[in-house]
Design a protein around this nucleic acid. Structure first.
Lengths: 195, 195
DNA sequence: ATAGAATACTAACGAACGTTAAATATAAAG
DNA sequence: CTTTATATTTAACGTTCGTTAGTATTCTAT
């Protein structure tokens, strides 16, 4: 056995390669090279290339977004969402790359139909979940659903900036944008820093 | 010469393949097969695989987004942005796929460093351009730049939904979301279709 | 009609791919 | 000190890749 767990190290290097070169651009030989082991060792731990890719998405990616979804709620709803996004900045390199790879599959830029369907099912749960979070604060006007939809859309871009483009987003900028969308929503301090 | 222009047909098929399988997953043989020509014909018109990919991004993609950026302005600023996004729905299949491929490169999911740098430069022009468009309507409050930034972020997600995920976004939904972000901005007819 | 250019194809090259068989080293158990 | 199971390697397999040399066909203009 090597210094650390070889199976884990393979997966870590694989994530980098799948991210940088895509599924087809990634070769088992390159992974083995970067890990520092021989080529067949990868087949010793994983049945084939696809199983290695699938394990990253099915196990690692979904465990990250579930962990993120079960975060503590803070006082104000804007604080909650600001933190929800800002915490992504602090994700370690491996988790961030897994997240990035998941988004790649989510946008059907990689992976296969099976993984895409998994993503579609997960996507259907997004809007209802945030609607449930926001419902106590909504004012029952006729554009409530539009506000939730806009917020989710904004969150998507913010996540992409941090995770995909690997940028650091300052907490203040995140808060500003969320506050703009949630302006007028209860608990967000009505018309926040304007008056 | 074939029925249509063979060089163009190759490019059209190539866009589909690059989109579906990524750069490395796309093979010259598969393209030639789908075009219905022999393999070396692709090398007759394009120096190699990379030049084919580059031409799609450098010529086709940027011509699409420049055409889109030079669209007519309509009366209200919300109408303008609503139309800006909604028109993407009507993009023909080829243009939409080129756009999609461009976003893939923009998110550094495909392409190489050279194309990425091209995208970075283009990205730097986005915020100033929209700030210039919105400036006459902004109220000079201290969160003007945040509003512009939020709008651009929202636009990105909307574009992705239409172009990448290939969904149809109804004009009404687009307008609602843009109006939420631009609420309070001059020329947006304050609290638009709500009262 | 025919020469020359443009367009197209057949066949093959070397390299790299995913994957596996077989052999070897290492560690644990008796 | 064997025996056995686990961990790791060398070497090779068949396939497919990007690319090109060489040759045939079709078009164009004289």
């Amino acid at each position: 056995m090597a210094e650390k767990d070889l199976k884990e190290r393979i997966k870590e290097v694989a994530v980098e390669h799948f991210n940088r070169n895509g599924y087809h651009g990634t070769t088992i030989r390159n992974i083995a090279n970067d890990v520092g082991c021989s080529l067949p060792m990868i087949y010793y731990y994983y049945k084939n290339k696809k199983e290695l890719f699938d394990e990253i998405i099915k196990k690692e990616f979904f465990s990250i977004i579930k962990k993120q979804a079960s975060l503590l709620k803070t006082s104000s709803i804007i604080d909650f969402y600001t933190r929800f996004i800002h915490d992504l900045n602090a994700l370690n390199g491996y988790d961030k790359q897994v997240y990035r790879l998941g988004i790649k599959v989510y946008l059907s830029f990689d992976g296969d139909d099976e993984l895409m369907n998994l993503m579609d099912e997960w996507e259907k749960t997004i809007l209802p979940r945030h609607y449930r979070i926001l419902q106590p604060h909504l004012k029952n006007t006729d554009n409530d659903t539009a506000v939730v939809r806009t917020l989710v859309h904004l969150l998507e871009t913010l996540i992409e900036n941090i995770v995909v483009k690997n940028r650091y987003l300052p907490e203040e900028e995140i808060r500003e944008e969320i506050a703009i969308v949630l302006r007028g929503v209860d608990g967000s301090i009505p018309d926040p820093q304007l008056h």
